[in-house]
Design a protein around this nucleic acid. Structure first.
Lengths: 226, 226
DNA sequence: GAAAGGCTTAAGCTAATTCTTAAGAAAACC
DNA sequence: GGTTTTCTTAAGAATTAGCTTAAGCCTTTC
């Protein structure tokens, strides 16, 4: 779960990030509206904590800018305690409104509440895909297309492919693969990864003999071949 | 949009219903926990406003009873203003917590905010029917037709079918199914889903022996067979 | 409080995948 | 060229996932 914390005050931002990390979510601080917009464009977020009083932008501007970029839930955390601002923010697209000074436990509980709801509901929408060369993975349907042909992979092979595709430039060591696919520690004398990798490569190259998709980085591990 | 208002005080219940109707949603008053549960079983709701202090039930009992019946969002409206109760309620499943005496405009704005979010994310937004091959589901009447025959499904079977049909291409893992149908965390050694799936398949294929509707994706879960 | 229907659990069974092993081939390094 | 690492292959064993059935429990209904 990735949470973006938009707050210009350094101390408060830091405090909020700590609350989030204590609950084992990842927190990314942003200190201005423009910085926040950049982060929103760059990747998907599960929740935004937003201070309304940012330099150079009004609260409504920020809220509508966020709404234009994504439909991520937004919790406003603001020093403005008046009903007028609160109601306007909620009407402008905020999902919650907490006034400063805030109770840490309450912020934590509200974050959890929104994430819980969001998680429960994100069953249907947003199509998620991974693409690389002519490999196309539909993460929801868990199908793999190569060279316009459907590829039947076992769940292990699928897990390996997904992992490699998640960071195509990264070299994954065998122990790295083992931890992420098998969720077990790796014992150096194990040929299992080799065999699975071989099987995966065979299936990929059957679908498109002209391409080589996975390369071996000698002494290091494996990586998608770019 | 149907909103259930659970509040034993007649005047406040009436006031809340009026707020809701002013925004052109329909409001249904309930004056006790047991009455609320009955309404929850009888039909689908888009939102619940809930007073925590009801005769005969504690707040947490009500919240978990609601969670067991459906995953409708719940806004708690309570006279208890202490942080402890607030945080406990949010952790117990509430989506929002408003303290009495409340600001009418704020309640209104928060209702809108939750409905907006729910609508944007809900599984089958504003659709009254689901169709797939010759399966026809009437979501209002909760009836299922296959091959022009009415199919009598139990509530669990129905819930499973609805979930699968909501994203026919998506593979639903067992834990995924469990969370969405049973509203409980999944323990790996549980055979329940298997059995229900088997029963559902049997009923479907009795109605139309020629078709296979649900396919098993080995090691991943289940999906509608396209 | 008896009956019916629905739900869960347990057990046996089948099918599919995964692991292991090992030996020869191929590739990379020095 | 020799050494090391990695790849491939294949077959059998082991493991795991899934299916089905039936019995017992629980809840609802009358």
């Amino acid at each position: 779960m990735n949470i973006l914390v938009v707050e210009d005050d350094n101390d408060i931002n830091h405090l909020l990030c700590n609350i989030i990390r204590k609950r084992n979510y990842s927190a990314q601080p942003a200190y201005s509206g423009t910085e926040a917009i950049l982060y929103l464009e760059k990747q998907d977020w599960d929740l935004v904590l937003l201070d309304l009083m940012l330099p150079g932008m009004t609260g409504e501007e920020i809220l509508s800018a966020i709404a234009a970029k994504s439909n991520v839930p937004v919790i406003v955390i603001s020093a403005k305690g008046d009903q007028h601002t609160k109601i306007d923010s909620l009407r402008a697209g905020a999902d919650d409104y907490i006034t400063k000074p805030f109770d840490i436990e309450e912020v934590s509980a509200r974050i959890d509440s929104h994430l819980r709801r969001y998680k429960r509901m994100s069953i249907a929408p947003s199509k998620q895909e991974l693409a690389f060369k002519d490999i196309l993975v539909d993460l929801e349907a868990k199908t793999v297309q190569v060279n316009n042909q459907k590829l039947a992979l076992t769940s292990r092979e699928y897990a390996i492919l997904i992992l490699l595709l998640s960071s195509p430039k990264k070299v994954f060591s065998k122990s790295n693969l083992f931890e992420n696919v098998w969720h077990e520690p790796f014992h150096g004398d194990d040929n299992t990864v080799n065999v699975h990798m071989s099987n995966l490569r065979t299936k990929l190259s059957k679908a498109n003999p002209a391409e080589e998709y996975i390369e071996t980085v000698w002494g290091m591990g494996y990586r998608m071949k770019s």
